[in-house]
Design a protein around this nucleic acid. Structure first.
Length: 463
RNA sequence: GGCGUCAUAGCCAAGCGGUAAGGCAAGGGUCUGCAAAACCCUCAUUCCCCAGUUCAAAUCUGGGUGGCGCCUCCA
């Protein structure tokens, strides 16, 4: 299996640190707001990575974190009057519900910043002892970037380059403008924990280092996250962890692409986030997954109006066929290893879900042909598709239920006016007055609807 | 300004040195009173541009051009 490593900027053969075992960590959500499609995408990608590694026979320990204390959460707390810890807990509960609707599995370990304060404090203390960090008079603790020679190795920047960035804040407490906070002293009324440096809270970057260290020790195999975290977050994690252990922190760094809306990145500051909860009201989770997985996970995805409906259309067609096959031949037996082999070959190349999904069109074409010929092995193929593609979260549903869900999510309300025209047209058609029938069809068409005839009736659809 | 990343048909998109997958749209056909659905067929001599390496380049190298991202919070 080959995985693209941001650290080396190439695909590398995946070899775990310890045979048969994989330790992986993905940066999760800062719970200052609800989960958007980008969060869902990220959770989906790493869930798939984990499942495929498991399929390959590895014993995977997969950890994700929730950042449940930070400036934005504190701001929300001030805004709403809800204590910061309660706000964060409620938001986590909400996000968990949405993610389960998205059908993304829970990680092996959930790590939360507020449940690791001791680990964080210990970590910071060690960094101070080793000379990599210092406490400022105000009670903040900073990491000394100059103390870590390899700083910039992930994002390929030098400290000088970074200082060219005009936006490095000037802060008198810092010895060097490039230094970043490990511990932030609490201001009046803010949530705090006691520490050797006074009342305060952890900085964002240190959480991941400290929680990783507590959960996994010195090294992990795979560290993932959104591409926007490469700098500074992941760069800082490397600086912290490697300063402490003297060992390479993560062997593989993987970064998923970002979701864009109308060509623009979704971000908290732009406020253009598409909430996962809202999308799940309109589309099935399988359609959302299908749409997202048609791209390479490393690439950005631009959400257009057609993206999800098109995916839903495909899945509806597939499920219709599944439904027919299962109605006729019942539940088959998985065993078409050709399907599984191809899937694995695709996934072995840096989780090429786009290729794996494209195989489906040929697979279902064959199934359809077999069904037409009355070849009951198509039921086995369906079962194999279900088994293989469930790894991507697809074809996990009862076909009838799935189709009912799609219908329920797309209620078609036909205006009385249109309904009447359709009725008249049907009557005209029965009397073989095709001129009138065509005229009525044109009228219905003009109102934005189409009529579909079958042997003994008609259906009106919105165009 | 620095760094990264991408550029493949009208659109989305795979491709990782061996002669351009797949999907959408479009066009043609079968079917239908006409439609729709379904099915069948067609649809990039060429991969942003210019050089180079090679028997062979969309793929590698160098140089351009353009988009996007990061250097503030972000998945």
């Amino acid at each position: 299996m080959r995985i693209y490593n941001t650290l080396t900027r190439r695909k590398e053969e995946f070899v775990p640190l310890e045979e048969g075992k994989v330790k992986m960590y993905a940066c999760g959500i800062t719970v200052s707001g609800e989960a958007h499609i980008g969060h869902g995408y990220q959770a989906l990608i790493y869930d798939i990575m984990r499942k495929y590694l498991e399929k390959c026979g590895y014993n995977v320990i997969y950890a994700r974190n929730y950042t449940d204390v930070d400036d934005k959460i504190i701001a929300k707390s001030k805004e709403t009057g809800i204590p910061a810890d309660e706000y964060a807990a409620a938001m986590i509960k909400k996000i968990d519900t949405t993610m389960s609707e998205m059908d993304v599995d829970e990680p092996t370990l959930w790590l939360k910043a507020t449940q690791n304060i001791d680990n964080i404090i210990n970590f910071i203390s060690k960094l101070i002892q080793k000379g990599n960090a210092y406490a400022a008079p105000c009670g903040d603790v900073y990491f000394s970037v100059a103390s870590f020679r390899r700083y910039g190795c992930l994002s390929n920047r030098s400290v000088e380059d970074m200082l060219d960035g005009v936006r490095v804040e000037n802060n008198d407490e810092k010895r060097d403008p490039a230094d970043f906070a490990l511990w932030k002293s609490a201001k009046e009324g803010e949530i705090y924990w006691n520490s050797p440096w006074g009342k305060g809270r952890p900085g964002w970057h240190i959480e991941c280092s400290a929680m990783n260290y507590a959960a996994f020790g010195d090294q992990i195999d795979i560290h993932g996250g959104g591409r926007d975290l490469i700098f500074p977050h992941h760069e800082n994690e490397i600086a912290q962890s490697e300063s402490l252990t003297g060992k390479q922190f993560a062997k593989f760094w993987t970064h998923n692409g970002l979701i864009k809306v109308n060509g623009q990145k979704m971000s908290k500051s732009l406020g253009n986030s598409l909430l996962l909860e809202d999308l799940l009201k309109k589309y099935t989770n399988e359609a959302i997954k299908f749409a997202l997985l048609q791209n390479n996970y490393r690439q950005d995805i631009n959400i257009t109006d057609e993206l999800f409906p098109e995916a839903e259309k495909h899945l509806t067609e597939f499920y219709k066929l599944i439904s027919e096959v299962e109605k006729r031949f019942g539940t088959g037996k998985a065993g078409n290893l050709e399907i599984d082999k191809k899937f694995n070959a695709d996934m072995d190349e840096d989780f090429n879900t786009a290729l794996a999904l494209s195989e489906l069109f040929a697979i279902f074409k064959t199934i359809s042909q077999k069904l037409a010929k009355g070849d009951e092995s198509c039921a086995d193929d369906v079962m194999q598709v279900r088994k293989t593609y469930s790894l991507l979260g697809l074809f996990k549903r009862n076909a009838a239920e799935y189709l009912a869900e799609v219908a329920a999510k797309n209620p078609v309300e036909i205006p009385v006016e249109v309904e009447n025209l359709a009725k008249q047209r049907w009557e005209a058609k029965k009397l073989r007055d095709f001129a009138l029938a065509d005229k009525l069809r044109a009228e219905i068409d003009a109102l934005g609807y189409t009529v579909k005839d079958s042997k003994d009736g008609y259906t009106v659809l919105k165009k």
